[in-house]
Design a binder for these strands. Structure first.
Length: 576
RNA sequence: CGGGGAGUAGCUCAGCCCGGUAGAGCACUACGUUCGGGACGUAGGGGUCGCAGGUUCAAAUCCUGUCUCCCCGACCA
């Protein structure tokens, strides 16, 4: 392809709103343009990368016996009401009406549609197992779209669904999917880690997220270097602690202290010269209408995801200021666990186990208490694991310690069990003639997000450094002087020869200065570069360079350059 | 939804405090000089200063309202 025909509108300046490398560089490299908040046009270079990622996904999924199909984007509301998710999914779902005022949604995911298909078409255990997938645009009206293509409202996703007659078959396919995903991300050149995760709105018990490790990732991953345990911060389990006090503990008296206007742990800690870990943080939540008080150590954050799953609540939110006043009799910031109304369920986090002489809010505006003793002043209804873990916490599986890092979630696989098949009456006849719901697996992979994650991991100050398997083109040829017939002819010859070798080649045929061409080549990040200039041609050579190590130039005759580049490309093309 | 900020040329922004001819850089067009790491000169095209009211002889600038966008917190591939 010739640059002048390729439509690559590069920019010298960074877009004002781009905060992360992938967003900034994709816009500057002429790959991405915004249409509206979280909605983007994929320009030709990005489109080529996306097609390549898709090809890798198809190859690996076909290897494990999954079959591609295409499901509708427009979903009738009735289907979502059947699964109960028309309400649960809430405003995250883009909704619209047809000319008869009938409600529809733009598909944010396809469990309902595929389950509907399965219940109509799959009758017998003889039809199973069956694994289907599609690669399609998804719509999610995200609260806060961000970071360009990394968190968009319209994005490309591969979603797969499998149907099984028994647990063993589902587990086996889940394992195959796990391995297929690992191969896909390896081939895309990503440094990733599979971790245990919370299941969120999709549901089911067992599930893994595939995280690309990156500073700019939105998820926190905790991993144990000793045993290999790894989980998201929303899922990572604390070590359950015995909650009795040590036998030699001498209780302090409960004392009330005035703390005017000091509502945060940090402010009160400063005034009293106590450490945050000596505090009890008391938070009030509304869980399906019931008010729950959560006690956690003052220096830790309560995980709403863990609390939600502990309580088995469908909807969980922090109680509003009015409710806090009603329950505690004090303004927000002065809540304590003791003396709350008897009907309030109190959940204590393990982080408080074995701790006495605590500081807490006094349930009176502008007052805190010291010397609070669990068991004497407050009796929790239950102990649970509801805080977000962080680096340095003990591993729940061994004696090791957890390390904290950030990641971009590029894939998520779920063992759904019978959640959807039961809700939607999707059944088959087993070999004993009994009607049973399908066991289902569901497997998501963000195609556009993989492209963004690849840029996050592979870039430098000058631009993108594409891994060969997903690069828009494999080789770029830079004729430095379009006025020199010899330069142009040589570049054209190399261009033709590369294409004849089956190498995907971009020829920068713009009548621009060398400096611009070098700068744009760095920005766009094609892995191999052949520079054709008067200087080299005077010695009968051209220069070959690789984007990943662009200071290393090799000078060689044009014919050798083609062989050199073609063999390098063939070596790296399949990735992994 | 809550909290901050911004709307001026295609892009990045200055001008606003202190009202008086609408600007710079990049991009674009033409010509010339240049030509191996984002050249330079000359000439040019491009704006109802987000929108609606108000104050004023006069509003990008002051006031009111409104819309939109961006950033920080609750979502997920």
């Amino acid at each position: 392809m010739r640059w002048t025909r390729a439509f690559v509108p590069t920019l010298k300046e960074d877009p004002a709103d781009a905060e992360v490398a992938s967003h900034r560089l994709m816009v500057r490299a002429g790959m991405l343009r915004p249409l509206a908040r979280g909605i983007y046009s994929y320009l030709p270079l990005l489109q080529r990368t996306l097609r390549k990622i898709e090809r890798i996904v198809r190859e690996e999924l076909e290897r494990i016996g999954a079959t591609e199909l295409m499901l509708p984007i427009l979903h009738p509301a009735g289907l979502w009401r059947e699964s109960g998710r028309w309400e649960v999914y809430g405003p995250l779902m883009m909704r619209l009406e047809d000319r008869h005022d009938r409600p529809y949604a733009l598909g944010p995911t396809h469990e309902e549609v595929i389950t509907d298909l399965a219940r109509h078409e799959l009758r017998s255990y003889r039809d199973l197992p069956l694994s289907l997938f599609q690669i399609q645009t998804k719509f999610r009206d995200e609260i806060r779209p961000r970071f360009g293509i990394m968190r968009a409202r319209e994005f490309l996703m591969k979603d797969g669904y499998s149907f099984h007659a028994d647990e063993e078959s589902l587990r086996e396919h889940y394992r195959e999917y796990f391995d297929a995903y690992s191969r896909i991300f390896e081939r895309c050149g990503l440094d990733f880690r599979a971790v245990e995760a919370a299941s969120g709105a999709i549901g089911g018990e067992v599930n893994h997220e595939f995280m690309v490790l990156a500073e700019t990732g939105e998820s926190v991953v905790l991993a144990c270097g000793a045993c290999g345990y790894a989980a998201t911060s929303e899922r990572a389990e604390a070590v359950p602690a015995a909650h009795g006090l040590p036998p030699d503990h001498a209780p302090e008296p409960l004392e009330r202290v005035e703390t005017p206007g000091r509502t945060t742990v940090a402010e009160v800690a400063e005034q009293l010269a106590r450490e945050p870990h000596e505090f009890v943080k008391t938070l009030l939540f509304e869980a399906d209408g019931e008010t729950v008080a959560v006690m956690a150590r003052g220096d830790r954050e309560v995980s709403e995801a863990k609390l939600e799953s502990h309580l088995g609540a469908a909807r969980l939110e922090m109680a509003g200021p009015a409710r806090v006043r009603e329950v505690t009799g004090a303004e927000v910031g002065f809540a304590g666990p003791h003396g709350l109304p008897g009907d309030i369920r109190i959940v204590a986090d393990f982080s408080l186990a074995g701790r006495g002489d605590l500081v807490a809010g006094a349930n009176e505006t502008d007052f805190h208490v010291t010397g609070l003793e669990i068991g004497r002043d407050v009796e929790p209804d239950e102990w649970a694991d509801v805080i977000e873990l962080r680096g340095g916490d003990p591993c729940p599986r061994c004696d090791g310690e957890l390390d904290e890092s950030r990641g971009i979630e590029v894939g998520h696989i779920f063992d759904l069990g019978t959640k959807y098949s039961e809700a939607m009456g999707a059944t088959f006849l087993d070999d004993a003639g009994e009607e049973r719901p399908f066991l289902m697996g569901c497997y998501g992979l963000g195609v556009t997000r993989v492209a963004a994650a690849a840029v996050e991991q592979h870039h430098d100050d000058d631009g993108i450094v594409w891994p060969v398997p997903i690069a828009p083109y494999e080789v770029e040829i830079l004729p430095l002087n379009m006025d020199s017939a010899e330069v142009v002819d040589t570049a054209e010859r190399i261009y033709d020869a590369c294409r004849a070798e089956g190498v995907e080649t971009l020829l920068d045929d713009r009548d621009d200065r060398a400096g611009s061409k070098f700068a744009d080549a760095d920005l766009v990040g094609i892995p191999c570069r052949v520079v054709v200039g008067d200087r080299g041609l005077a010695d009968g050579v051209v220069e070959v360079a690789f984007r990943a190590a662009k200071r290393d130039l090799e000078r060689m005759p044009p014919e050798d350059a083609v062989d050199h580049v073609a063999s390098r490309v063939r070596l790296e093309r399949s990735g992994g």
